[in-house]
Simulated assay, not measured.
Amino acid sequence: MSNLKPEPANAPDDPLRRTLLKGAGILAAGSLAGSALGLAPAARAETSAGLGGRLRGVQHFGITVQNMDRAFEFYTEVLGGTEVMRDGDFFGDRIQNTLLLTEEVRAVRDGVNPVTLGIPDLRSGAQRLDVRFIQFDNVVIELLQYRDKEQPTGSGKAFAPAQDLTSPAFPRAMHVCFYIRDDVDFNQFVRDLEAESARRGMSNVKANRIVRATTDEQRLGASLDSNTNRITEGPSAGWSLIYCKGPEGEQLEFVQVQGHAKQVFDGAYESRRKQLGA
């Protein structure tokens, strides 16, 4: 666990800036040692005219949670990620503007109370932001919790309720996808993931099946081989996947990429390296 002492985000030594710089430095040293398929990253041409040529890749995915401790337990103890660092108690004008300016402009434009649009008051410090970064092999997950200042860091109540409608079909919906190693039994992984999560009281962790179910009992009672959608023909041949809800109701995906699909992605990665002058 990190022993960093949180500081106000409007202090001269801005902790949000420290957090992002440290996270970027750690990734520069290790987490981007592979592409999405575990390959070495391409060198990016500093003088490239295109914006893409100025990027190093994806630094992290962020998930806003209701209960930081519960989410942290899932991503570190169930999925096995490693904590990079944690920081928090962020508040003040600078952090409010950095994260929420567009939403505030909308509130002013529409003449509504910012709270009705889910905008916390970091500006006065009535609400605070805490973050934790978790390292996986090729990307970092950032957990964020917005809370009232009176609430304790970690398991305190979140500032806003969770969104009830979490279908991945909604525009703006995003998901985080994890690789499963080639030598792992995908079907058994899904069963073990649900069982371990249930053992920890994480009732929201529910993986889909490839057969229809109208109740959770039917879903859990489906045969083991229904835990994985294996694509055997077409451009995606070799791709196996299943969608799953995480402990906060967030949308996750788990995949294995083999055969033709792996060749396609490996080839695309090598072509990009050449285009960018690697």
Rank of each mutant, 00 (worst) to 15 (best):
Tyr179Asp: 06
Met202Phe: 14
Ser167Tyr: 03
Arg70Tyr: 01
Arg44Glu: 10
Lys274Met: 10
Glu253Ser: 07
Ser236Val: 11
Gly234Met: 08
Arg230Cys: 05
Ala40Pro: 14
Ser226Phe: 08
Lys206Phe: 13
Asn204His: 15
Arg94Asp: 07
Glu233Leu: 04
Asp266Cys: 03
Gly30Gln: 09
Thr98Phe: 11
Ala49Ile: 15
Asn67Gly: 03
Gly238His: 05
Leu220Gly: 00
Arg94Leu: 03
Gln251Met: 13
Arg18Thr: 09
Phe74Gly: 01
Asp183Gln: 05
Leu122Cys: 05
Gly30Asn: 13
Ala158Tyr: 02
Leu117Trp: 08
Ala278Phe: 14
Pro171Trp: 04
Met174Lys: 12
Glu250Lys: 02
Thr214Ala: 12
Phe136Val: 06
Gly238Asn: 08
Arg191Met: 13
Asp164Tyr: 07
Thr98Val: 12
Gly234Lys: 09
Ile119Pro: 04
Gly118Leu: 05
Gly238Pro: 05
His60Trp: 02
Asn208Thr: 09
Gln275Thr: 14
Gly81Met: 04
Arg199Tyr: 06
Ile26Leu: 08
Lys274Tyr: 01
Phe90Tyr: 15
Asn138Arg: 09
Leu39Ile: 12
Leu32His: 09
Ser2Arg: 04
Thr228Gly: 03
Ala71Tyr: 01
Arg272Gly: 07
Gln256Met: 06
Tyr75Gly: 01
Arg106Ile: 12
Ala222Leu: 12
Thr76Met: 11
Cys177Ser: 15
Glu196Met: 09
Lys22Gln: 02
Asp185Phe: 09
Met68Tyr: 04
Ser124Phe: 14
Met174Ala: 12
Glu104Ser: 06
Gln275Glu: 11
Leu20Asn: 07
Ser240Ala: 14
Phe72Cys: 00
Arg17Asp: 10
Glu270Asn: 06
Phe91Glu: 04
His175Trp: 10
Val140Lys: 02
Phe74Lys: 01
Glu150Trp: 07
Tyr269Pro: 00
Arg123Asn: 11
Ala158Ser: 13
Arg191Gln: 14
Asp192Asn: 13
Asp121Ile: 05
Leu122Gln: 04
Val139Gly: 07
Leu79Asp: 03
Gly277Pro: 05
Phe186Val: 04
Gln66Cys: 03
Gly62Thr: 15
Val84Tyr: 00
His260Asp: 02
Phe170Glu: 03
Phe178Cys: 08
His60Asn: 06
Lys149Pro: 00
Thr215Asp: 05
Gln135Glu: 15
Asn229Glu: 13
Ala126Leu: 13
Leu193Pro: 07
Leu241Val: 14
Leu224Gln: 03
Gly246Leu: 04
Tyr269Trp: 15
Val58Asn: 09
Gly50Leu: 15
Asn229Gln: 14
Thr76Asn: 07
Ala278Glu: 15
Gly259Ser: 10
Leu27Phe: 10
Ala36Arg: 05
Leu4Gly: 00
Gly88Tyr: 10
Gly52Arg: 10
Ala160Lys: 06
Asp137Gly: 05
Ala169Ile: 12
Val65Cys: 02
